[in-house]
Design a protein around this nucleic acid. Structure first.
Length: 557
RNA sequence: UGCCCUAUAGUAUAAUGGUAGUACGACAGAUUUUGGUUCUGUUUGUCGAGGUUCGAAUCCUCGUGGGGCAACCA
């Protein structure tokens, strides 16, 4: 009931409004969107905004979404990326109606081009790239006509066929649309439709040596598939008149382009070019390095598809430039993981404690797996006389608001007993090596007299039963909010401490950990088994820390 | 010195000529065997100047700020 109400109250974004209007006006019976990545890199969190938008629009209004690879530039593209992209989309939880490639349409696009030549709307230009650039003019000065602009139709047709037949070298000729060399919109100054590239294409092999440009492939592909709403990012706004021009002159299905502002996020970079640099120059270990904003990186780090979809939903869709705080992404993943992650106790920086009055060898204590789950299961955790606690959970001279262990003070060991610190043992350098504590037998968790109040509860692990695990603790990849907008090379702003590796002591239940299981290490954060793990070596990535008011409190002082 | 997009709390986003709301953040409190979670409360906003109107965040004009466009990239 409340959910329905919420749904009703939730306002539409401008694209949903357009779709609703089109549907209401009977313009379309159902809608068809597409997600059109170029297979020249891996998908990142910015793409997930587009994916959730395109697939979400179709889902919401009973339509469908095609996956179309925009593979018109053979030199940068590869099937490795095709496979990676498909995996990422599926992982995010979306299924496409059709898998298409712009290269599926090369023959059709070629026919379209000949059609435009016959109509006198395209011509072969022999000018060099430099000459074409010069004749293009500037934003404030009109361009000038190429001497080849007035070539007759038959000659253009023959030349274009010769281009396809491989008679010319790369760069010798191009096919251009004859639009308007003095248009205020630069995109309309006779844009290039085809260029010669004697290059191997990952799907069409060597069967073509001319390849269509984006502008002569994208809109036409949309039209061939009868895409109703072609949603892309803002930088293509100036291309829209050209998109419409080609469709009009070709008299083909009128797909329409709509633009939204791409996602920018603090403390990271979001362009494939920059991400590729980080990979190639060894700043990260790969596209799926857990510090990367890529889908594969986030997945490896322990993010869930649900959390990313929630994020995409929360950031909204509009046309103004934005810089989303990464803390919103972190909020989303905590929100989800808090509900599903099993709790475990792991000590990162151990301080030994000895319970001087604990007479038994050991005992097993039941500990709940997830307090958020009313039907939570319990596991048996071994407790014994010698334990590790977190070194930071003890202070010899604590400040006022420190609630944890200190000389003479009590804390509860989670799901076990309350202990009191009796003696601090140090080595010759003054470093604390051990704490001698007493425990309160009647304070046993769950017991009738266990309701004794103490200020804090801390996690622990039994030394003889502990297993070790490597934990990889990540921080933001960059030191500044918006590295791309800083002066100089963005790589100067990389955070040198974005990765910290430590060996931690874990309760034995963690020995049975499996891939795809999300854990909360009590009070330490959310963790996820890394693919680098092996039978005898557990490696965990910290997905995210927990919110920490104590850190804030300390900063105030 | 052109064309295009854009401007609402710290960050995003809604209000579609009629009470400026929501989320995250921040701050304060309650609860808590995680300084987590949960709950409650507080704080902060319509870029500027004119105009239209009974009434403007919304429409118009002129500024100003931000972004994009001059790849044989997408």
């Amino acid at each position: 009931m409340t959910d329905i109400k919420k749904e009703e109250e939730k306002s539409l974004n401008f694209l949903e409004e357009i779709v609703e209007e089109d549907l209401a006006a009977g313009k379309y019976k159902s809608i068809l969107t597409r997600f059109p990545p170029e297979p020249n890199g891996y998908l990142h969190i910015g793409h997930s905004k587009s994916i959730v938008l395109n697939f979400g629009l179709a889902q919401k209004y009973g339509g469908k979404t095609n996956l179309r690879f925009d593979d018109t530039n053979p030199v940068t593209e590869d099937t490795e990326y095709v496979e990676g992209i498909k995996e990422d989309i599926r992982w995010l939880g979306f299924e496409w109606a059709n898998e298409f490639y712009a290269s599926d349409y090369f023959e059709q696009l070629y026919t379209f081009a000949e059609d435009l030549i016959r109509k006198g709307l395209a011509y072969v230009d022999d000018s060099s790239a430099e000459e074409i650039a010069r004749m293009k003019g500037t934003p404030t000065e009109p361009g000038t006509d190429s001497p080849y602009r007035s070539r007759n139709m038959e000659e253009n047709l023959q030349l274009f066929r010769d281009m396809r037949a491989g008679k010319y070298r790369d760069g010798e000729k191009v096919l251009r649309a004859r639009v308007d060399m003095s248009a205020p919109n630069m995109q309309l100054r006779d844009p290039i439709m085809y260029r010669i590239k004697h290059a191997h294409h990952h799907r069409t092999g060597d069967s073509w040596c001319i390849y269509p440009m984006y502008d002569f492939a994208h809109g036409q592909s949309d039209s061939i598939e009868h895409i109703t709403h072609s949603v892309c990012t803002l930088e293509f706004v100036p291309h829209r008149p050209l998109y419409d021009w080609f469709i009009e002159k070709l008299a083909i299905f009128p797909s329409h382009q709509y633009e939204f502002a791409r996602l920018n996020m603090t403390y990271t970079v979001m362009s494939k070019r920059k991400l590729l640099q980080l990979v190639n120059e060894g700043y990260v270990t790969g596209w799926d390095d857990p510090r990367m904003p890529t889908i594969s990186g986030l997945r490896r780090r322990g993010y869930t598809p649900e959390s990313i979809r929630m994020f995409a939903d929360k950031i909204g869709v509009a046309k103004r430039e934005n810089l989303i705080d990464v803390s919103l992404l972190e909020f989303c993943v905590r929100e989800h993981l808090n509900k599903i992650a099993a709790r475990r106790m792991v000590v990162f920086d151990p301080l030994k404690i000895v319970l001087t009055n604990y007479g038994r060898e050991e005992e097993m204590l039941p500990v709940e797996d997830n307090p958020e789950d009313p039907a939570t299961t319990h596991r048996q955790v071994p407790f014994s006389r010698e334990l590790y606690i977190e070194r930071e959970d003890f202070m010899e001279n604590p400040p006022k608001k420190f609630f944890r262990l200190s000389p003479g003070q009590k804390v509860r060991l989670k799901s076990a007993y309350i202990i009191q610190c009796e003696e601090v043992v140090k080595d010759e350098t003054g470093k604390i090596t051990e704490l001698k504590c007493s425990y309160l037998p009647e304070s046993k968790s769950g017991g009738t007299e266990s309701n004794i109040k103490v200020q804090a509860t801390i996690h622990w692990v039994s030394i003889v039963h502990a297993i070790t695990a490597e934990v990889r603790l990540y921080d933001r990849l960059f030191r500044v909010e918006d590295p791309a907008s800083e002066d100089g090379d963005f790589k100067e702003y990389i955070n040198p401490d974005s990765l910290n590796v430590a060996v931690a002591y874990a309760e034995p239940a963690l020995r049975k950990v499996k891939f795809n299981e999300h854990y909360q290490f009590l009070r330490k954060g959310y963790f996820y088994l890394d693919k680098d793990s092996s039978e005898d070596r557990l490696i965990f990535n910290r997905t995210s820390t927990l919110r920490d008011n104590w850190v804030k409190e300390q900063k105030k002082q």
